[in-house]
Design a protein around this nucleic acid. Sequence first.
DNA 1: TAGCTAACGTACTGGTTCGTACATTAGTGA
DNA 2: TCACTAATGTACGAACCAGTACGTTAGCTA
Lengths: 221, 221
Amino acid sequence: MTSVDEPARTGGRTRDAARTRAEILDVATQEFARAGYDGARVDEIAALTRTTKRMIYYYFGGKEQLFTAVLERAYGVIREAEQGLDVEHLDPVAAIRRLAELTFDHHEQHPDFIRLVSIENIHGAEHIAASEKLGKIGSPALDVIRRILAAGQESGLFTADVDAVDLHAMISSFCFFRVANRSTFGALFGRDLVDPARREHYRTMLGDMVIAYLTAERAAD
Amino acid sequence: MTSVDEPARTGGRTRDAARTRAEILDVATQEFARAGYDGARVDEIAALTRTTKRMIYYYFGGKEQLFTAVLERAYGVIREAEQGLDVEHLDPVAAIRRLAELTFDHHEQHPDFIRLVSIENIHGAEHIAASEKLGKIGSPALDVIRRILAAGQESGLFTADVDAVDLHAMISSFCFFRVANRSTFGALFGRDLVDPARREHYRTMLGDMVIAYLTAERAAD
DNA sequence: TAGCTAACGTACTGGTTCGTACATTAGTGA
DNA sequence: TCACTAATGTACGAACCAGTACGTTAGCTA
């Protein structure tokens, strides 16, 4: 996630376009995730950087494009993680459970990403729409799900009438909600969904839920 | 939701504290839901009202307190809906399914509420924490779930080891995600989760998921 | 090593935005 | 009907904030 080596300055402040750009992105990710798009301050981002506000406009053009760049990189990280997915050697039930667990873990480990997605949804996904990269980013996870699902349905193990996109939505919704709505849920119901002590419980719960749904006996229609 | 009668002015603009207050709340709800807390403009809220910005400060004190008041009313609406819940005459399985469906419907019918909750989460639920009312608002739905769950578990129908709060989280996560993340999900995966044509599909999917989870055969531990 | 350009810094501006000082009026109760 | 107060309107200020004009320098290359 952090792509900048903290004590990188080789004595006097050398010029390093890549490092400056990356540092701005790092800080901007935190600031946008912390305060939302409109709550984030370009001056604040600059202040937390070893460079100046001028450089933000030099490299990104403006606040809007900076946020888009932040989103692009954040989605890039999750896509990379998905490409590393290795569950297809397992039987369909175990594969789906493992996939759900990895999704669970990824969401938990990247709360900033969750916040960015929430923020982007408040703004109607307009930055995704404006992005060249994000339009055609695809989702390796979706392909994996598709194949596992096909195998499970063919063998008769999976009885549910879902496709990969819907199953992905189901798994994501649980993982996403737990992190995104942690604050209000905790304030209203007095239960911290991200309490480490309850982590295993929820991880198991997610797997049980998805497997139960996929393998449930259903009335033939 | 709208608590102001649109053509209410009895000829000349009469003074009506309750109406003015309610109208500000209505407009503020829309504006905050539309643009987020920091994106919302007090001047814009005032402009969309039949009164002036002065009145916002007169009745609410400031932007922060206005947002808190908006949240309080929004949560009040959902609490009221929950109090009208009438599912306990059904058997546990049907009752839970019905409850899930009602939650599903309520989320779909109140996208503004969903957005407000997302926004409040971005800000760490600080307005809920600052609110007298919201701290002790409770949740009638939780009590209903608790009783259904007890009945189902006692009769041996429900095998899952969940309590009411966790089950509520499970049901909410699906309903919430579908509405809250509609934009990014649609942009990335090309599927509109709130498409009316798919509504029944998702409503059934939610019920199937929850019931399958609750009634699944489990290895005795 | 001279010159060129990518990279960087400073200082500023113009518009926006929350909040308020001050003035005014409708309606009510004595 | 008169006075008092809750309710309302106007006009303005001070801070904030995204964005930029202009000037500077490091480091590479011819």
